[in-house]
């Protein structure tokens, strides 16, 4: 049995934040590790830092190097998705993004943030979330994986690579409307 399985998601996220705050107080340099928040036009919910983290997760999760779908598009879809979500979920997911960004520090003791890891290193670290002994790390990985896989594989540009001819009726719109 996972030693942390008694923790609920929100409790974990709160503890994570408390831990981050403690580390921040002790370390001082923690927040500067993220660097300047990139300015991203047109965001509805996410700030620049979290948008960058979401892009980094998309690049780790999916083989975007060889796909016609970009991490920028996927992160914007996530931003649009959040616009329709309840405040409670938005807060949880925003916190989860923060935890992922500082995952290398929290779980591996490395002074580097997730979005600054090289792609292969980031994938190795992200697999650590997927396969973690800590249930709540798995929960975070699962939540983002589900979202990304649904959006990515719902994109007609991806279908030829998986042998899916698309829906069988009518001429469906070439792309889903951006939320």
């Amino acid at each position: 049995m996972d030693a942390f399985s008694f923790l609920r998601r929100r409790t974990f996220l709160k503890l994570g934040i408390a831990g981050l705050a403690g580390l921040g107080a002790a370390g001082g340099a923690l927040w500067s590790m993220r660097g300047q928040a990139p300015a991203v036009a047109g965001l509805k919910v996410l700030d620049g830092h979290r948008f960058a983290t979401m892009k980094a997760i998309a690049e780790a999760q999916l083989p975007l190097e060889s796909a016609a779908v970009t991490s920028d598009h996927l992160a914007r879809m996530f931003d649009g998705f959040l616009q329709g979500e309840h405040d409670e979920n938005v807060a949880d997911l925003a916190t989860a993004l923060l935890l992922v960004e500082f995952g290398p520090l929290i779980f591996e003791g490395r002074f580097v943030t997730f979005s600054h890891l090289a792609l292969e290193d980031r994938r190795r670290h992200w697999r650590g979330w997927m396969e973690s002994e800590l249930a709540l790390r798995r929960q975070v990985a699962l939540a983002f994986r589900k979202f990304l896989h649904v959006v990515f594989f719902d994109d007609p540009k991806v279908w030829p690579a998986i042998g899916y001819p698309g829906p069988s009726l009518w001429g469906m719109p070439a792309e889903e409307p951006t939320p």
Binding site: H149, V150, V151, F153
Partner: peptide
């Protein structure tokens, strides 16, 4: 449909497309 099947598969990076290339 592809999105929902892919969401069930615990894959990462190139493995994702490898797994879904067998969708048919």
């Amino acid at each position: 449909t592809p999105g929902i099947i892919a969401s069930l598969l615990p894959r990462l990076g190139a493995e994702v497309m490898g797994a879904m290339a067998a969708y048919p």
